[in-house]
Amino acid sequence: MAGHTETKHTLHGCSIHIMRGGSGAPLVYLHGSGGGGLWLPWMEDLARQFRVIVPEHPGFGRSDTPEWLDGIHDVALFYLEFLAAENLTGVHLVGGSLGGWIAAEIAMLDASRLKTLTLIGPAGIHVPGVRKPDLFLWSAEVLARRLFHDKAMGDEAAKRAVDPAGDDVRMKNIYTVARLAWHPRFYDPLLMKWLNRVKLPTLIVWGREDRVLPVALAQGFVERLPQAEIEIVPDCGHLPQLEKKDIFVERVRRFIAGSGR
């Protein structure tokens, strides 16, 4: 077991919570709408090969909610400052869902510290005619269940989602999600125009049965990132890194190895 440590980092008046494990080339993971703060088995797997760094975004979990947090660009620019403050280069940037959106924004704004980009069921791009479900009309329980294709995993997640012990963090997280993604709903017109600036080796992973951000949205990324490899994971919902952990970890390793690391 590589294990992990937890630290705080304060930048622009905002203290964020960070988990770190393993050694090697830096791999930064940006979590999704549900929040971060849990060191998960797939992180442990990747920490055998990489120096895995997992921050909680401003406005989520144990991180502060700064006054300046108005939109997705604030988060992306905050992370560019963070990468600089940590003096990270050659970063393998991985983001899931909302975190995939943030990762794409970072890469669009300034890819100079990045080596590869992995987007897992990312938000951020609207594809005309593709209707996204309205997460803000779902209860926490319904949302948790629909994250997964596997029924047992969904039931388990739904059970956790109604535990009152998690209420405070859940409310804080969903508040920030609304702050960032209410309108336009989970996308950024600027990213739609300029994502094609990104020339990094890119991997897009999407669960074929994703009920949160439908796989049809992948088209919007493929069009703008023609160099991207795309992996559609069968029998899998919104979180391949949890639902199909081994496939996900193996695919990321292969992608990074093939990108001339």
Partner: peptide, 18 residues
């Protein structure tokens, strides 16, 4: 009306919301 419609996130401060 379901609760998610009546009280979208951020409509009330976190302390009032509970």
């Amino acid at each position: 009306m379901p609760m998610e419609m009546l009280l979208p996130p951020g409509y009330l401060s976190l302390s009032s919301m509970k």
